[in-house]
Design a protein around this nucleic acid. Structure first.
Length: 543
RNA sequence: GGGCGCGUAGCUCAGGUGGUAGAGCAAUGCCCUUUUAAGGCAUGGGUCGCAGGUUCGAAUCCUGCCGCGCUCACCA
């Protein structure tokens, strides 16, 4: 950092200045934080150095992790631990500490697990015990010693040497209630992870889920790729994009709303089986199922149709549920989802099946055929139900898709594949040979959420151009989410794309279902929040 | 964006129909060599989210703003 050396050098190295700067970044309200704790702990750090310890050492050679020790010795009796003695060197963060005169206990936490240590002055010596007394909750230490069982039977390290590893200068949340403030948990996820072991579990499961997907696709001959996150045209989905700007090229770019069109360009290029697991960005509302950036798995398989990739996706999810949870059933609030029991029905069948009795006789297949009969269905439904948005100028297919969401989505708790979507809402899907208004497209629903979306990929460049032109008309009609024209994509298709099935899977939403998380923010480490208020006023610098 | 709710010590929370704040944990000092939400004694810590207003007096009542949560609308 360059500072203006003409001005009288401000006391930038003074403790007060450093504290003020640190607090600005670390705390919700810098002025309210107990500065004394911070300063006291800095003093303790100096005293620790004076004892001959490094304040921020570079490594610690351990013989065991805490999980290692718990796994290997939890079942051993006191006698077994004494003969022969088990020597260990182990590191962790202090999560509880109890001093009793000339001896004391502490609990070290590592990898989400805890192990007790016993520090006796006779065993660690004068200096070692001085160090113990200078330790605070949250500090990192390493200890060497041997395992034993206390009077109450707890597996414990009898410490012979303590090595200081790093200081926690800010106080951890209360040990009993932990950190519960939702905002703080998201903003300071690092503290959340220290304090709440179940949070750690959620993200470990999320990681297993993605591993399982990768393993499944890799074993089926798929190649993982990365395609642009910044795109000149935001295509491949129906959504509003974020805009950003490249300075040197002086051009606006969109953060991608989907990787779809790039992945399909790759199938043109001969990557017959490709997938990507990465973020998409959609500039839309937030809610329990929506975060502006979310993680999507997309894959494409040449020579396969929508049915083939439907089967592959179902088996991939079934396998993932087993890999993540060890079983086939997961809790969803007070309900249970059975991942071994899937239903399949067409969108039209679903509307008929879930049609509310109060809305009169169930629709007939013929009711979906014309704009007028669809309109009549909407009117019957809206007469008895929460009002469903309806624009008489929109294509009938779009109305039917909306009607499906209004009628059926809330009933789709168990894994269900809905197939045959209207062409009007599926600009990238092949249509049914016998019913051009309908496409070979499906979506998977579970827990009242859309989880995945797949179809037979439209690979006829001229038909694709007509679909884009249709979308442009929707755009002119005021639909800001309608797809844009993408000439290069059409050019790619003009070189010949093999027939292919493609799929997108919402990773966050599946992670929600597998961890019983009722909001998407609980499966995203750092969900989007408004920025913290700029701390303090002019006098927030050292005073 | 609309509706509802919340914001008090580092953390978890009381209090409140107006008289300028409490507990537990955490912190500091002392005692305690097998404790475990260790214990005992003592101590420090807060512009009660921010800004206005009403009032002799506001953490409390009113208005606006900020942040968060739930919910509805739009969206995966």
């Amino acid at each position: 950092m360059k500072i203006d050396n003409l001005s009288p050098s401000p006391p930038q190295s003074s403790p007060a200045f450093i504290i003020a700067v640190l607090f600005q970044t670390a705390c919700k309200d810098p002025l309210a934080l107990d500065e004394k704790i911070y300063e006291l702990r800095r003093d303790k750090l100096k005293q620790i150095e004076a004892l001959g310890q490094q304040s921020y050492p570079r490594q610690y050679n351990f013989t065991h992790t805490i999980p290692d020790i718990l796994a290997a010795y939890s079942e051993k009796t006191a006698e077994q631990l004494e003969n022969p003695r088990v020597n260990v060197r182990v590191a962790g963060r202090i999560m509880a500490i109890r001093l009793m005169g000339k001896a004391g206990f502490a609990h070290l936490q590592q990898t989400g697990q805890r192990l007790q240590i016993y520090v006796k002055k006779d065993a660690v010596g004068e200096k070692g015990f001085e160090l113990y007394k200078l330790l605070d909750l949250g500090d990192h230490i390493g200890v060497s010693g041997y395992l034993f069982r206390t009077r109450t039977g707890e597996l414990t390290v009898h410490v012979e040497e303590i090595t200081f590893l790093a200081k926690d200068l800010l106080p951890l949340p209360e040990k009993w209630h932990g950190l519960t403030d939702v905002e703080l948990r998201y903003r300071q996820r690092y503290v959340d992870l220290i304090m709440n072991p179940e949070v750690r579990e959620v993200f470990l499961k999320r990681s297993k889920l993605i591993q399982s997907f990768r393993r499944h696709l890799d074993s089926h001959g798929f190649v993982e790729v990365e395609t642009p996150m910044m795109q000149p045209i935001a295509g491949g989905a129906v959504a509003r994009p974020f805009i950003t700007h490249h300075n040197t090229l002086d051009m606006d770019l969109f953060l991608r709303i989907a990787p779809e069109l790039y992945l399909k360009r790759l199938t043109v290029g001969g990557l017959d089986r490709v997938y990507e697991i990465n973020r998409n960005f959609r500039n839309e509302g937030l809610g329990w199922r929506w975060n502006p950036e979310f993680t999507m798995l997309e894959f494409y398989q040449a020579y396969a149709n929508f049915k083939d990739v439907m089967d592959l996706t179902q088996s991939m999810i079934e396998q993932a549920v087993k890999d993540v949870t060890g079983g086939t059933k997961t809790k969803w609030g007070d309900q249970e989802i059975d991942w071994a029991n899937w239903q399949r029905m067409t969108m039209r069948e679903a509307i008929i099946y879930f049609w509310p009795e109060s809305a009169g006789p169930k629709p007939q297949m013929s009711d979906f055929a014309s704009q007028d009969s669809v309109k009549a269905l909407v009117e019957r439904f809206n007469a008895v139900h929460a009002h469903m948005a309806y624009d008489p100028n929109e294509p009938a297919g779009k109305t039917i898709a909306n009607l499906f969401e209004a009628v059926a989505e809330e009933h789709l708790l168990q894994p269900t594949i809905i197939y045959e979507f209207p062409t009007a809402v599926s600009p990238l899907s092949k249509n049914k040979p016998d019913e051009p208004d309908w496409t070979e497209r499906w979506e998977i629903f579970a827990g009242q959420m859309e989880l995945a979306n797949g179809f037979s990929e439209l690979n006829d460049p001229e038909e694709q151009r007509r679909r884009f032109e249709q979308q442009l008309k929707e755009r002119e009609r005021g639909d800001q989410e309608a797809h844009q024209m993408d000439e290069d994509y059409i050019r790619a298709l003009s070189y010949g794309m093999p027939p292919a099935g493609g799929v997108g899977v919402g990773v966050d939403r599946l992670a929600m279902l597998l961890t019983n998380s009722r909001t998407i923010r609980d499966v995203i480490l750092f969900p989007l929040l408004r920025p913290e208020k700029a701390p303090g006023g002019e006098d927030s610098e050292g005073k």
